[in-house]
Computed example of a mutant assay.
Amino acid sequence: MPEQELEFRGINRKHLGMYFEELGGKQMTDDFPYVYKSNEWCGAIVREEELSITSTFKVNSVHIRFNASDDMTLKELIKNYRVKTRRIGG
């Protein structure tokens, strides 16, 4: 089963879980690792940390593991998930 882990910064952990649900996953656990499953893939919010960019500027860092039934499904899941996490400044 293909697997990839990514880090997302500055996005609320609960929002990251909602994105899995919007992509068709169902929440399976209520604590770390938060696991979301569909018929073809599994996503897990593995851990959350706080990073200090400067002494006063801190941001969260969330590590997410993606698993899928095959490479094509994994690539599609990550592509669709990245669309949900895209932030456009203005």
Rank of each mutant, 00 (worst) to 15 (best):
K26D: 12
D70K: 03
I64F: 00
A68F: 09
D31G: 07
R13T: 07
T56G: 12
T73I: 09
D31M: 09
C42I: 01
N60Y: 06
R47G: 05
F32Y: 07
R86V: 08
R47K: 11
S55C: 05
G25W: 01
E5T: 11
E40D: 09
F8W: 14
N60K: 03
R13Q: 10
V83I: 15
S52R: 04
H15G: 10
M72K: 07
S52F: 11
L16N: 03
S38L: 01
E22W: 14
E76M: 05
Y36K: 01
S38A: 06
F20E: 00
T56M: 15
T29W: 03
F20L: 09
F8G: 03
N39V: 05
D70S: 05
Y19V: 08
S52T: 14
A68D: 01
P33Y: 06
D30Y: 13
T56Y: 14
E50C: 13
K75P: 04
I11H: 07
L77A: 00
R13W: 13
R13P: 12
A44E: 01
G25L: 03
E22K: 09
M72G: 10
E5V: 13
D31F: 13
K58W: 11
E48V: 12
P2I: 02
E76S: 15
S61D: 04
S52M: 14
G89N: 10
E3Y: 05
N60S: 14
K26W: 10
T85D: 09
T54A: 08
F20Y: 04
A44G: 04
E22Y: 09
E49F: 12
N39H: 11
F66R: 00
R86G: 03
K58F: 11
D71A: 15
N12D: 06
T29S: 10
R9F: 08
I88H: 08
H63Y: 15
G17L: 14
S38T: 04
F20N: 00
L6N: 08
F57N: 11
K75F: 04
T73C: 12
R86K: 11
I78M: 07
M1A: 11
G43D: 05
S38F: 02
I45P: 02
T54D: 13
G25Y: 02
K26F: 07
E48L: 01
F8E: 08
